[in-house]
């Protein structure tokens, strides 16, 4: 489990993250949703240590990550897998080399064991047989899946996904969502997903936090979202007139 307590972050005179607290549960897909520019990605970067929070605690199984020494941080980082918005695959490496990379750096597995693990991860994201392809030869959806395979290669305890569906068609988005959910449940890991895709929220939103203007505005799950009385969340969910009409029709 990850818990954040009273996180604040300012850049110059802009207060981006305002006193956010939330619990991200193990074995569940925890979603952070909100409009573009509301502070979702900043919060994620604070959680993984790419930025430093001004105040607050980020607890990984009760260990306050920002307060740890380098060795302690390193220990937690080796348990983190991250799926970046653009994939962030290493261009100069093939797909299998990308997936094998964390294993080379942090494990003492034999070549055969590494190959087995790589094939298992590629199989998990339905990319078997694509081992020798370079990132430039992959489609957007394949890149996301490959990045997911790399993120889970070292059996992480925590998986972070930054807009896993951006730039993907609805069908591929659902494939990625389901993959993330399956992996989360099967490996019993804590998954944190940033998204503004309402399809994802309705598909896999086990535990949802809605951020509005840098504040934790609403928390709940996918079943509660549609009946929300929160005006800002309602506007966010039903931003499309089409969905609003369909929802009203169904409700009546």
């Amino acid at each position: 489990m990850i818990e954040i307590k009273n996180i604040n972050k300012t850049f110059g005179d802009r207060h981006i993250i305002k006193d956010i607290s939330f619990k991200f549960y193990q074995g569940k897909t925890n979603l952070i949703i909100g409009e573009s520019g509301c502070g979702k990605t900043t919060l994620l970067k604070l959680m993984v240590g790419l930025h430093a929070a001004d105040t607050g605690e980020i607890l990984y199984h009760n260990k306050n990550f920002p307060a740890l020494d380098n060795k302690g941080k390193q220990e937690i980082r080796t348990k983190i897998g991250m799926l970046f918005q653009g994939g962030a695959l290493f261009d100069s490496l093939t797909l299998e080399e990308n997936v094998q990379f964390p294993l080379d750096m942090f494990t003492h597995l034999s070549k055969t064991e590494k190959a087995e693990r790589v094939n298992y991860c590629l199989d998990k994201v339905q990319l078997s047989g694509k081992n020798k392809l370079y990132p430039s030869e992959l489609s957007g959806g394949m890149k996301k899946r490959a990045a997911l395979a790399r993120a889970i290669a070292n059996s992480p305890d925590y998986l972070f996904c930054d807009e896993p569906n951006s730039g993907l068609d609805p069908k591929t988005s659902i494939v990625i969502d389901n993959l993330i959910q399956d992996i989360t449940r099967e490996l019993n890991i804590t998954t944190v997903i940033i998204t503004h895709d309402m399809n994802s929220v309705m598909e896999i939103g086990d535990n949802v936090m809605f951020i509005h203007k840098g504040e934790n505005w609403w928390t709940g799950d996918k079943t509660e979202i549609l009946n929300t009385k929160n005006a800002e969340l309602f506007d966010f969910v039903f931003a499309s007139e089409f969905i609003k009409k369909v929802y009203k029709k169904n409700a009546s």
Binding site: K73, Q74, R77, T78, I80, F84, A88, L89, D91, F160
Partner: peptide, 17 residues
Amino acid sequence: GAMRITEQIDALEIMGI
């Protein structure tokens, strides 16, 4: 520079490298 702007360096950092 290209690795920086495509978040590949961030990916390394998050892995603990």
